[in-house]
């Protein structure tokens, strides 16, 4: 097993596309050896800059990703794209269609596109997206773009995994900023008002800027709003400049280091939590839980049951 993994590692570091692909599958499915694989590449990561692009359905995320990638390619960078789409909660399947909008990148050897379904992972998405990006990072990709639809938890996870997060809106998404509760408002480093040639764009820009002005901020980066017409490439150069501004902001005063440290901490915590849970729920304990539900729930409170089940484990912590 470990030999296969080490060969895979070698392939990744050489930039072999088949190896990258296999490695990603190994990680996504948490197949045997995936921890070793991630450890193997650990010291080779940290070079790639990670960008998150999110927004409501139909806001033009793939189109913008496509154009930004072309700009990055012109500057000589290699680009990895991780396109995330939701898994159907009913069937566990997914249709991942983001490549349709990026078909002119399909044969560019300096671009690697991977589609990823959210699957069932509650809270694990940020970790997995980070891990897939690690593979691309280790393989020598200079930029990794996460592209995902902003629905609920997903965009928060992606923002967690990104260094710079771009939130895309369109003139028709006015009601989103009406309610500042929306997670999209909180995670953006840069706002993009796409399809800005549509009626209502100016008004939307003003509303958005007003909402941002009201927002309390605990740091000195203030998100700005950029207008684009992504399908014509309009405004994307300006956006790229602002992305570089954000990167230099992060590079100053350790912001990027802090952000990445936070991510690392989060990752360790997630791994520990998931590993403990995985080992904890062995057949014996599963049976205890089943028994409880069948015949003991009237007699014993769930807290006492949990306490009882944890008894041994908690002792080892002392």
């Amino acid at each position: 097993m470990s030999k296969i993994i080490d060969e895979l590692t070698k392939g990744i570091l050489e930039g072999n596309r088949n190896a990258i692909a296999r490695a990603m599958t190994t990680i996504e499915n948490e197949e045997d050896g995936y921890v070793r694989l991630l450890s193997n590449i650990y010291e080779r990561i940290g070079r790639a800059y990670r960008i998150g692009i999110t927004g409501p359905p139909g806001s033009g995320k793939s189109t913008l990703t496509n154009h930004l990638t072309k700009i990055l390619r012109k500057e000589g960078f290699k680009v990895g794209i991780i396109a995330v789409d939701p898994t159907s909660p009913f069937t566990g399947g997914a249709i991942l269609g983001d490549r349709i909008r990026m078909h002119d990148l399909a044969l560019d050897k300096g671009v690697y596109i991977r589609s990823m379904a959210t699957r069932g992972s509650s809270g694990g998405l940020a970790r997995q997206a980070t891990e897939l990006a690690d593979v691309l990072d280790a393989a020598g990709y200079d930029y990794v773009i996460y592209e995902t639809v902003g629905v609920g938890q997903v965009e928060l996870d992606i923002a967690e995994a990104a260094d710079t997060t771009i939130v895309l809106l369109v003139p028709e998404s006015g009601d989103i900023i009406q309610s500042l509760k929306s997670g999209l408002m909180e995670i953006a480093d840069i706002f993009v008002l796409n399809k800005s040639d549509r009626p209502g764009a100016e008004r939307m820009q003003k509303d958005l800027e007003y909402a941002l002005h009201l927002r309390e901020s605990d740091h000195d980066w203030h998100p700005k709003v950029y207008q684009t017409v992504a399908n014509q490439g309009k405004g994307t150069e300006e956006l790229w400049t602002e992305m570089k501004n954000h990167r230099s902001y992060l590079d100053s005063e350790n912001h990027l280091v802090n952000k990445r440290d936070r991510r690392l901490k989060n990752r360790i915590e997630t791994v520990i939590r998931q590993r403990i849970e995985f080992h904890f729920w062995d057949d014996k304990r599963k049976k205890i839980l089943k028994n409880y539900l069948e015949s003991e729930k009237e007699k014993l409170s769930p807290y006492l049951l949990a306490e009882k089940m944890l008894e041994k484990l908690l002792k080892t912590f002392k």
Partner: peptide, 10 residues
Amino acid sequence: YGEYVEPAEF
């Protein structure tokens, strides 16, 4: 004018 690409919405 550029070329049209389909939306990826299903």
